[in-house]
Each structure stands twice: as C-alpha cells, then as structure tokens.
Design a protein around this nucleic acid. Structure first.
Lengths: 209, 209
DNA sequence: GTCTATACGCAGATAGAC
DNA sequence: GTCTATCTGCGTATAGAC
C-alpha cells in the first residue's frame, strides 16, 4: 500500500521469479540426465555442467542432490493430483469424467516425459519423509481413479467386476506409456490419448460406444 | 568313460550345483534388498550380511556388484522369454495362446516379484553391454506379444485397431502388477490371472466371451 | 570358499572470496 | 549467485592368509 512497497515489491518478485526459473531449469535438466543414466550414476557436477554452472553453485538453489530428485518427483505426482483430479469433480458421466482425466494425464505425461521416468523408477532414493509425501499423492490419485470406476459400475456404464484391480490396470497402462512413447514417432500424443480412451475406458472398463 | 571320470564327475557336479545354488541365493537375497532400498543404495556388505558371509567373499561368486544386478535382470527377461514364449507356438487360437502367456507371465512374476521390481527399475545401472542383452530379451518378448495380437486381428478375434499400441498396453498392465500385488492380500495370483485374462484379452483386445 | 585388512577413487557437501 | 579449493567419508574392489 505504501510507496516503498509499491517500488520494492516488483523488484523482489522479479528476483523471486528468476530464482524460481533457475530452480526449474536445474530440476528439468537433472531429470533428463537422471532418466538416461539413473539418479545414482549422476554427479552434481554432471547436473551443473548441463545447467552451465559449477557444482557448488547448485547448493544455492537446492540443499542436496536428493532435494533435486524430490522436486522432480513432485512434478509428476503433485501436479497431476492438483491439475487432473478436479476433472473428476466436473459435471458429466463417469465415462466422460474419466476420459477427460485420461487425456489430461497423457498430455501432462508427454510434457514431462523424462520426469515420469524418474518418478516411476527412483523412489527408493528419496528420504523416508519425502518418499511418504510422494506416495501419498500417488495413493490419492489411485483412489480417485478407483472411485470414478466404482461410480461407473453403479450407473452400469462400466461392466468390470473389481474396481480396485481395474483401476490399477488403467493407471499402469497410462504410466507405462512413458517407457515407449516418443514424440517423433508416427503417433502424436493426441493419437495415443484417443487410442487409450478407447482401450481403457470403453474396452477394458466396458463403457458403451 | 574311464574309471577316474566316473568317480570324479559326480563330485565335481555336486560342487558345481552347490556353487550355483550359492550364486542363486546371493542373487535372490540381493534382489530383495535392491527392490526395497534401490540398487545404488545397497552396499556389498549389506548383501553379504543377508547371505551370512563377509563382503569380500561375494567376489568369489560374482566379479562385481553390477554382475549381481545383471543376474537379477536376466531372471526376469531371459526366463520368461525361454519359458513363456513357446506357449505362443502351441496349437490353439490367438485368444487361447495369449491367455496361456498371460497366466504364465503372472505366475512367473509372482514367484519372482522382487526381481521384477528391480528389473523394471534399475536398468540404467547396468553396463552398456549388459543393458543391451536385457533390452534384446524385452524387445523379443514385446514383439512376440505384438505378433499374436496381429494374428488375432487377422482371424477377427481381436478388434483393436493398432497391434503395437495394444501390445504395449497389455504388457504394461501385466508388469505393473509387480508394484501393487502382494501375496497376502485378498486375491491369489490365480485370481489376478483370471481377472487379467478377462481385462486384457477379452475386454481390451475384444476376444469373444 | 571365506576370512581380515586395506587400498583408493569418487562424489556429495562445505568454506569463504568475489 | 557463482566461483575455487578442499574436505571427508563411503563403498567397491583387491591382496593374501587360512
């Protein structure tokens, strides 16, 4: 409200944004290398090289190497939980709502493909505390998928017998894509999304059409 | 043929078998710890402790830690390739043959659950040469699944549009089970196998019944 | 085949200047 | 916010006796 604030705040914000972008750049570059070589086989110096700074400078942005891994894992668990799950609360049938989630999931997976590889493979290298946070997000996501499957079973749209197993089958199908899909292949991610809505929602779960 | 041979050979064989069992014991114990803590976070001393010997003694059985990992990875790629894939050459329709493969795959996965977790998560820590061997087995397996899907599409049993994508969906579903299935839950592995034959072969691929 | 003792290189992390 | 310099410990692997 006061004059000092209105002058000082923008500068502080700008600096904060630049710092945040640097953090995101580090996490993004690190994810690329982690995905290719495995978290444990990557040194802080390797990450620093990719960013264009020296190893010690990384510690200005992250307190430890494990915190970089944690940031990468959050990207593929917190972001989908916060961005995709609300789609399950939108109006529409279970078929429509789950189809939206599948599409959103695949768009996100495609935009963060290396992060998904890391997040699905390197959980064991997180501290117990960080791992618990990540697994909470995953459990939450899994539970919401299971719940919409149960909802579709109640309406009669989905014809499977066991919601829990079917939900695992669906999420495993979706996340598995990170291991074989490449942007430069014959199919676009939208092609894959169309195919997977058909395979998972209509065929596997039995939704009409 | 000579007397010395007929006396000496059994002893040598016995020793060879004992040595092999020791190797398998080491690989099996190592797989358990790798699956829980991650390959890179496990020391040779940890493995040795689990086996009941000292760290240095492991080098009598394996030339390096990475060779233990390689042995574990072979268990979940070479064994299924050699044991399960012949089921696809047996008499029967594509539906029947793929259903046999799915059941055999899940029985094997259940008997080697921790090895699957390791084999699916730690490939990046293999040497380039070993990794190539493992990926060859996986490609071979994936290709044979795709081929039987294609065969089923030709006979009209399977109603999917793209064999490659459908085959990935099926194998990703199957392997994903290693991350959530536990022997002590409500379902037996045979229950899961029945469910997955239904979900993957009949529902997802569209085989009648 | 297992042991004790040890070599030794690497990688995560810190100190402190600029 | 990045640098140079450095510490330090850990963990794979080896040597060689039993």
């Amino acid at each position: 409200m006061s004059v000092p604030d209105s002058i000082g705040a923008p500068q502080t914000d700008t600096r904060r944004i630049r710092t945040r972008q640097r953090k995101e750049d580090i996490a993004s570059k690190a994810a690329q290398i982690f995905a290719r070589d495995g978290y444990a086989n990557v040194g802080m110096r390797d990450i620093a090289d990719a960013v264009g700074i020296k190893g010690a400078s990384l510690y200005h942005h992250f307190p430890s190497k494990e915190d970089i891994l944690f940031a990468v894992c959050l990207t593929v668990t917190q972001e989908p939980a916060e961005t995709n799950l609300p789609l399950l609360d939108a109006p529409g049938t279970p078929t429509e709502r789950l189809s939206s989630l599948v599409r959103a999931h695949l768009v996100h997976l495609n935009s963060r493909r290396v992060e998904y590889i890391v997040g699905l493979h390197e959980l064991a290298s997180l501290t117990t505390e960080h791992r618990a946070v990540i697994e909470d997000f995953r459990r939450q996501y899994q539970r919401r998928v299971r719940d919409v499957v149960t909802a579709g079973m109640r309406t009669g749209e989905f014809t499977v017998a066991d919601a829990r197993t079917a939900a695992f089958a669906v999420t495993d199908m979706l996340n598995g894509i990170s291991n074989w899909f490449h942007d430069d292949g014959e199919m676009s991610i939208d092609d894959v999304a169309d195919t997977y809505v058909d395979l998972a929602v209509h065929r596997l779960l039995g939704a009409p059409q």
